[in-house]
Design a protein around this nucleic acid. Sequence first.
DNA 1: ACCCTGAATGTAAACGGTGTCAATGAATTT
DNA 2: AAATTCATTGACACCGTTTACATTCAGGGT
Lengths: 336, 336
Amino acid sequence: MPFSIRQIAKLAGVSNATVSRVINGSDLVTPETTQRIQEIIRDLKFVPNRSAARFKNGKSQIYGAIVPDLTNPFFMETAKIFEELLVENELELLVSNTDFHLSRTQLSIHRMLLRRVDGVAFMCSEREAASLESLVQNRIPVVTTDHHRTAPGISDIVVDFRDGMAQIVGHLKELGHRDLGFIGGTDDLATSRDRRDSFLDAVVRFGLSSQDSWIMPGNFRISGGAVGMETILKQERRPTAVVTANDLTAFGALRKVHEMGLRIPEDISLTGCDDIEMSDVVYPPLTTLRISRRQYAQMLFEALQTGAEDLTQPGKVFSLPMKLVVRQSTGPAPAR
Amino acid sequence: MPFSIRQIAKLAGVSNATVSRVINGSDLVTPETTQRIQEIIRDLKFVPNRSAARFKNGKSQIYGAIVPDLTNPFFMETAKIFEELLVENELELLVSNTDFHLSRTQLSIHRMLLRRVDGVAFMCSEREAASLESLVQNRIPVVTTDHHRTAPGISDIVVDFRDGMAQIVGHLKELGHRDLGFIGGTDDLATSRDRRDSFLDAVVRFGLSSQDSWIMPGNFRISGGAVGMETILKQERRPTAVVTANDLTAFGALRKVHEMGLRIPEDISLTGCDDIEMSDVVYPPLTTLRISRRQYAQMLFEALQTGAEDLTQPGKVFSLPMKLVVRQSTGPAPAR
DNA sequence: ACCCTGAATGTAAACGGTGTCAATGAATTT
DNA sequence: AAATTCATTGACACCGTTTACATTCAGGGT
C-alpha cells in the first residue's frame, strides 16, 4: 500500500525520474506534467520515502543526542529547542538515554554508528566518552560539553563556571556570608572538578572561607543533594550558605533542609545552577545560575553543522555564559 | 571511509553475500572463513549500515513519539522507559515535540510518514489527531492516550481517572473536607473533560460539594495552575481543598498559594496527578495520583507491537490504573 | 532541406545491504 | 567409476530514491 515513486510514474505514464523531479520541485518539468503528477500524488496520498532518498546520498538527515538522564529538565529543555532547530533544517532527532552507565553509553554510540546519523550531541561526561573517535572515523561529527578536550571532528562547549561561580559567591558575600559549603558532582568527572574548583577559586578571590568537610560530592540528581546537605548540616560548625552544582542537587538539599526543620534563607542560603523551570516553583524559589537553553542548543547545532564540513579540522571550543538569577533561597547571613 | 560490505568482501576475497552472512551470524559459513572476515571487520572497525539493512526489508526499526511538551517530566519519565524497551528490541526512538500546536502536530505526523517509522506513540490530545489515519494508511500502527476512540490500527490507552478521582476525593472526605475545587486542562480536550467529569462524579458519589466557580480550566502546565488557583482564592467563599489534573498544574497552584500568604495544608489542601519525581521535592510534598511509567511505557510498546501484526484489526483499549500517594499537601480541613 | 540548440523526458546505474537461487566441489553412496 | 548428497559460496536482483547521461523532438538559423 505505501506507494513507490515508480508506481506513481506508471500511473502518470512517465518515468520515475520525472516524478522524482516533480517531488523535488525541479523546474525542468513542464507545468502540465507537473500538475498531472501532483494530482496523482495528492489523490493517492503518496508520501515519498525520505529515508530511501537520504540513504541514496549517504546521509540519514538524523542527528543523535546521547544524554545521561532523559528526565533531567535541563537536558530536555535544551533538547526541545535543539529539536526545533533540527526540524527547521529537515533533520530528525534520535534520542538515547544512558542512565550514567558506561556500557550503555558505548552501546548508544554504537547504535548511532549503525544508524549512520549525521552528527551526535554527546551530553554525557568525558568518562563515558571512550569510543567517540569511532564516530569521527565514520565521518560523524560530535559535540561534547565540558570535556575540556577536543579532537578533529569533536567540538566542545564549555560552560563558563569560573564567571558563574564568581557571580554566585559575589552575591553571597554582599549578603554577608563568609562561610560557604558546596555540593558538586561525582569526582571522576571533569565537569564536577571544574565546578568545584571554580567555586573554591571564587571563594579565595572574594576572601571568603570554606573547609573540606563542607565540600561534598553529589551526583547531579536530587538524591545526591539530599545526602550532601545532610552531611553538611550534621556538623557542629556549619556554613551559612551552600552552593550546588545544579538545580536538581539544590532541590534535594532544599528538601533535606526542610526535613531537618531549618528554614531557607533565614537559617541557611542555598543556590543552584541551570535555572530549570522548576527552580521558580519550589519553595522558596531558587537563586541560581541560568544557562540559556537556546544559546546552548544553537551551539550544539552550529558545532555539528560546521563540524560536518571538514572532519579533519580541529574541533572548536564554544563558551557558554552563565547569568545569576536572584530569587528567595538566598538571604542575609544569619547572625552568629 | 565508512566501508561497505562489498569492500570487506573484496579484501577477504569472498562475495558480499558471505560477509552479510557472517555479520548476521549465519551458521552456513565455515569457521575459518567466518574468522577471517571477522578479523578484517575488526581491523577496519567496519560497522554495517543498519538503516540500509532495514530499508531493504521495508522496515525502519524506528518508532516515533509525538509529545506535546518535551519538558513535561511525566512524558520524559515515560519516554525514558519506552526507549529502554525499544533498545532491548533493536529499535530506535525518534522524538518530536509539538508545543500543543495543531500545525506542528500535523508536521510531526507527516515527518513520521516521510521516515517510514514502524509505529507512532501519539501522546497529544485527540484535538490534534486529525491526520492519524494517514499513518495507518501507510501501514504504521498508532497508539494514543485518552482519546476514547479507536480505529483499525489505532489503539488507545485510557487512564482510569474515575477510580483515581474516587481515591482522591475519598481521601479528602476522610480528612473532613466538604468543599472541593478543581483545576483541569483546556476544555476542548477529551482528557480534560474526562478528568473533570470523573472529579465531579466522585464529589457527588461521596456526598461532598463543589460549585462552578471552583472548577477552573488549566493547561497542564505550571502557568495554568497558578492562574486557576488565583481565581479560586480571590473568591469570597473558598473550597478547603483543590484537586488538580496534573502535577505541574498543582505546582503552579502551590506557588500561588504561597504567594498569597496561605499555608498548605493548614489553610488549603492540594492534590496533583501523575506523581512526577518533583512531587516529592516541592514543599510541601504533594499528595497525588501515581501513574506507573513502566506500565504506561509497556502498554505503548505492546500496543504498537500487536498493532503492527494486523492493521485491519480494530485497535485495542488498554486501561491504566492510578494509585493514591499521600504526602503532606493534604491535611485535615480547617475549621470554618 | 539540414544542422544545431536546448528544453523535456527517459534510461540505467548507483547507494548498502538481504536473500534467493545457482554453482561448485568434496564426501558419500551404489 | 558414476551418481547423489550436502555444505559452502557466489551471482544477482531487489528495496525507493537520485542523478549523470542519453534520447527525443520542436523550433530557429543557414
